[in-house]
Amino acid sequence: MKSQKSFESTEKGTAYIVPTPIGNLEDITYRALKVLQSASLIAAEDTRNTKKLLTHFEITTSLISYHEHNKESRGEQLLNRLENGESIAFVSDAGMPGISDPGYEMVQSAIAESIPVVVLPGANAALCALVGSGLPTSEFLFYGFLPRKKKDKLKELERMKSLTATLLFYESPHRLKETVSAIHEQLGDRQLTLARELTKRFEEYIRGSISEIMEWIEQTQLKGEFCIVVEGSEDTPLSQEALWWSHLSVLEHVTHYMGEENLSSKEAIKKVAIDRQMPKREVYQTYHIDE
């Protein structure tokens, strides 16, 4: 067990997690500007991108890169500087560091070394999209980017099929069509909202059923990063005992019935479809893709 009193005096530095605007520069907070100005160093996902932000607000603090490809070697250097009393502000290109962006590993390392971690509130695309979607906000699951391969994408969506929570995803414009199609295939024709260009001049929300959204996608030149907000399942969750198979993939589920009950693949697929409340055709296709 560890306790952190964020603003007690310490010989070590502080790791500040600083959200930056996701599009509109006016969304920066006074506190964020103060930390960026006073920090010993700013560790940025892309120094070129962050330099534009700092130039706009006339901040001259030194920059150093910290991103997915150098996080191990650079992370060790930054940790040493924190140990020696320097305070470092960590920023990503936009939004909250650590949410679908670098930052988690540094927070974890700092905590392990009893270095204070102070997280500033600020801009986040997923929460803006959720609130603006009109879908329930009382319970939600943020996933981030789904896997690129269709098989892996469908497998992840299958895990979420029975969740009653609103689902949040990020997606790039050139993969949006495939991802929405996969959501439709696995989750059915639920209500869905697309949010793009959030906080910018061309901010847009597209709300409707998934089938309506798919038609819109076909007729639209897709630009900008998207947040996808999907209605949760309306089905009452089954008991844990009834969901004994929840940790199994479709392939493993079918194979279980074939082995344990000596069923043919056709009979096993039928039972799996009943268990998972899926069309037999979908179970059949998934089973034979994964074989």
Rank of each mutant, 00 (worst) to 15 (best):
T220Q: 00
L146P: 06
R207C: 04
P173I: 03
R196F: 04
T199M: 11
T220K: 15
K153Q: 09
K223I: 00
G188V: 14
E234D: 13
V229P: 05
W245A: 08
P147S: 11
L238G: 03
V229R: 00
R190C: 09
S233V: 10
E171N: 01
K150R: 14
R175Q: 01
V229Y: 03
F202K: 08
K155D: 15
R148E: 13
K161Q: 05
R190A: 10
F145I: 04
L154H: 12
F145E: 09
E218Q: 14
F202S: 04
I210G: 07
I183G: 01
K150A: 12
S172R: 02
L168N: 00
K153A: 10
K161Y: 08
Y205R: 05
K150N: 14
K223C: 01
S233H: 09
E234G: 15
E171D: 03
I206W: 09
E234V: 10
D152C: 02
L194N: 05
A182W: 03
K155T: 15
L154Y: 02
Y143L: 02
Q191C: 07
L168Y: 13
T199I: 08
Q186N: 08
Q221T: 13
I213D: 02
E212S: 06
A242K: 10
S246T: 04
E185H: 02
A242C: 15
F169P: 04
A195Y: 10
P237Y: 13
E171Y: 00
L198C: 06
E178A: 06
A165D: 09
H174C: 01
L157S: 05
S211I: 02
